[in-house]
């Protein structure tokens, strides 16, 4: 009897842990999605003036460039993957498609 109760309790704890982990993963995914979107928006604003989109002064954008060196590299690598935009979007939404 005690063994059965212990097993049920252990399974319940595992279930709660699993749910907790799923919630954390879901939350982190949502936060990462927002983070990536904001990063893309920020870089678009900063790099826009260099390609003719007047989002801000070209000089402000140039002054910021050095501090954004690493992010521009990430942006470039994302641009390479940009061929499968739909796939990326579906992947970012999670679940099976």
């Amino acid at each position: 009897m005690f063994k059965v109760l212990k097993k049920i309790l252990r399974e319940f704890v595992s279930f709660v842990k699993g749910v907790n982990q799923a919630i954390i993963e879901d939350s982190v995914s949502a936060l990462e999605l927002e983070h990536n979107e904001l990063e893309a928006a920020f870089l678009t604003m900063v790099l826009g003036p260099l390609v003719g989109v007047a989002t801000l002064s070209p000089i402000l954008s140039l002054e910021l460039l050095e501090a954004l060196k690493n992010e521009v590299k990430v942006l470039e690598s994302r641009a390479v993957r940009g061929e499968d935009v739909l796939g990326d979007l579906m992947a970012s939404l999670g679940g099976e498609w």
Partner: peptide
């Protein structure tokens, strides 16, 4: 505007 976005990032 840029600072607001950057702080959020």
């Amino acid at each position: 505007k840029l600072i607001n976005i950057r702080e959020r990032i």
